[in-house]
Simulated scan of single mutants.
Amino acid sequence: MLKCTNCLNEQDSGKFCGKCGTSLMETGIPQPTAYTEAAAASPAVGAQPVNTNEHVMKAKENVSKYWSYALQVLKKPSVAFDTKDSQYVNGIITMALFVIAFALSIYFLANKLYKAVVGGFGSLFSEGGIGAESLPFFSITSSLFMFAVFFILGSFISVFLVSKFMTEGFTLKELLGQFGSILIPFTALNVVAIIFGLMGSIQLTLTLTGVSLFYTIAILPSIIVYDRAMKSEKSLNKLYWATGASAASLFIAYLIVRMSVLDFMSEIESLLNMGF
């Protein structure tokens, strides 16, 4: 489409304006065609896959960084004591892996034992009822997950409070990074416990999960507090502060067990006894 700059007349072709005779050779303004519009729109259409690929690549990069850091801590656990606040994401990931692996290992073990007791009689009853072929996955794992979360939070809160009472300068990110980093070796124990849970090995599964849980509740708080007291420029009773952190964590764990875990264990025992 050509447009005259003198009288604004529009026409499809020609060298001169049909109304005023002005030359259109130099003043004609070509309008965008359908091909031009499609070509201009094509980068926008292709932008979404590019962004998706960028997210995937970034996720892979983050996983690779966490894996490298976890291996470094496993090879040399003392590295965890020098963790900075930039590692707080890795700390949170480790704590999440700890509770997930703990819940799965216990569930797989309980489900294996339940199947061994009930055997083939599960098919004679309604699905999800008495004699079901498998234990309810979500209800049991969610409960185990929450118990592990409470134990982790209790341990972390005790470290946080004692560090505050010590008037030691630190950031929450720094504490999360150090707490999670020191937890890496015992998170690995829970991951290994999943395999033994699938195999139905009661002794190995409960030993690994028990050691990791006891370490998290009773030992980890004192280790972190003692390390912080050692690095402090103030004169602190390191042993007392470290012992106090573990005592606070154990007390919180006792309250959790008293209020919830005993009832949950009785429910599991009743489910296992259904086969007799």
Rank of each mutant, 00 (worst) to 15 (best):
S23W: 03
L24P: 04
T171D: 13
S123Q: 15
D12F: 14
T94K: 03
S143R: 10
K65G: 04
A188M: 10
Q72I: 02
L250P: 02
P221E: 14
D12C: 11
Q31G: 00
Y88W: 06
A59P: 03
N9Q: 08
Y254P: 02
M274K: 05
S143P: 03
V56F: 14
K75T: 07
M25G: 10
T52Q: 14
P32C: 01
S68D: 11
G210S: 09
N51A: 14
K76H: 09
E269I: 00
F160Y: 06
F156Y: 15
Y35D: 14
F264D: 03
F16P: 01
T207A: 15
I256G: 02
G154V: 04
V261D: 03
A253P: 06
L135R: 02
Y69L: 12
D85K: 10
L272N: 00
I130Y: 09
F150N: 01
S163K: 11
A148Q: 00
V117S: 04
K65F: 10
G28I: 02
F125R: 07
F138P: 01
G180V: 08
F98M: 03
V73N: 06
I92V: 15
I223T: 12
F81R: 12
L262T: 08
C17M: 04
T205M: 10
P49E: 10
E269W: 00
F276C: 05
S105A: 14
G177V: 03
F81N: 08
K231C: 10
I152A: 07
L272Y: 02
P136Y: 05
I219K: 12
G91S: 01
V257N: 11
F145K: 03
P30R: 07
T22R: 05
F214Y: 15
L176Y: 02
A39G: 01
F186D: 01
L220A: 12
G275V: 11
L262C: 00
G180P: 03
